[in-house]
């Protein structure tokens, strides 16, 4: 009997949350637009090679440096490759790098932040110092240094981007966990016989998830910029792989002679992705924490 009552309660609560999301989306069409843009990105990333009209690596010297036309929407590059296909196919790699990096920093940051926030003590002090040190570097420069030290590969771009993002997540989780360490519900869970780890993981940590999601979304945009920047200066992704940063870098050589489509289209794709994640982050913040709305 009471079981059905709680279920109905839970259902109603979920309904409330859904209604709240629907309300926020209706009142803020920009967030809806952000979700739509995100869907486009996902589609391009998942379907990539299937929807690209040409092989992104197929060179054709007789058809090089053609301006945008009906067959080649974004024109062709100096080797005659179709820029439109390359831009589409690159979506998967760019998203994969940034999502992998953000997931990694989310994971490591959550664990470290939870430990520091729950137990405090010397661990907290040491981690705090470590994060201070990481933040003392200009972050892009530190990422360059890490990639240079570990070796010039795509995985290392992911690790470097993850490392420079970890402090943001760890600090956020630490603060959220710390204020709830001695909260009533945490003590009740402990009295009910749950172990410290269980209380931390199942009762306290989930409270940090909403602000974390906002951070993730804002961070994704930044991670894409960072990864594209690194490959722009020749780190990580190697030609002829299609990737937005490297395409802008290659196209930049032709911009002074007026072949604008080589660099502009991948750059626009990059901007579109970053803009989507930033809009999404702002929208999520409105849903999660309406007080912070700017």
């Amino acid at each position: 009997m009471s079981d059905t009552a709680t279920r109905a309660e839970a259902l109603k609560q979920q309904d409330g949350a859904l209604a709240h999301i629907a309300y926020v989306l209706r009142s803020n069409p920009v967030t809806l637009l952000a979700f739509a843009m995100f869907a486009v990105l996902l589609l391009a990333a998942v379907l990539g090679p299937l929807i690209a009209p040409f092989d992104p690596l197929q060179t054709n010297a007789s058809n090089a440096l053609q301006p945008p036309s009906f067959t080649h929407w974004f024109g062709t590059d100096n080797l005659g490759r179709d820029v439109f296909s390359r831009v589409i196919v690159a979506t998967r790699l760019d998203l994969a790098i940034s999502i992998a990096a953000v997931a990694l920093s989310f994971l490591v940051g959550s664990v470290l932040g939870s430990l520091a926030g729950y137990w405090g003590g010397w661990l907290d002090a040491v981690l705090n110092r470590v994060f201070d040190t990481i933040m003392a570097f200009p972050l892009f420069v530190l990422a360059m240094g890490i990639v240079a030290a570990l070796g010039n590969t795509v995985e290392n771009i992911v690790y470097a981007t993850a490392v420079i993002n970890i402090p943001f997540y760890a600090r956020l989780v630490r603060a959220e966990v710390n204020i709830r360490r001695d909260a009533g519900f945490a003590q009740a869970a402990k009295l009910a016989g749950n172990s410290d780890v269980r209380v931390l993981a199942l009762h306290i940590f989930p409270n940090a998830l909403p602000p974390m999601m906002v951070q993730v979304s804002l961070n994704l945009g930044w991670a894409i910029l960072n990864a594209a920047g690194l490959s722009f200066i020749g780190l990580g992704v190697r030609p002829p792989t299609a990737e937005w940063g490297i395409m802008v870098a290659e196209g930049a050589n032709f911009i002074v002679s007026g072949e604008w489509w080589l660099a502009i289209f991948p750059g626009l794709a990059l901007m579109f992705a970053v803009f989507t994640f930033n809009l999404l982050g702002d929208g999520l913040r409105d849903i999660v924490d309406p007080r912070q709305r700017s």
Partner: peptide
């Protein structure tokens, strides 16, 4: 503010070169 944070610097530079130089 919204557009500025989405701009990749290297891309802005390339666009400015195209407009003002070429």
């Amino acid at each position: 503010v919204t557009a500025g944070v989405s701009l990749p610097t290297f891309f802005t530079g390339v666009v400015l070169i195209y407009i003002f130089y070429y």
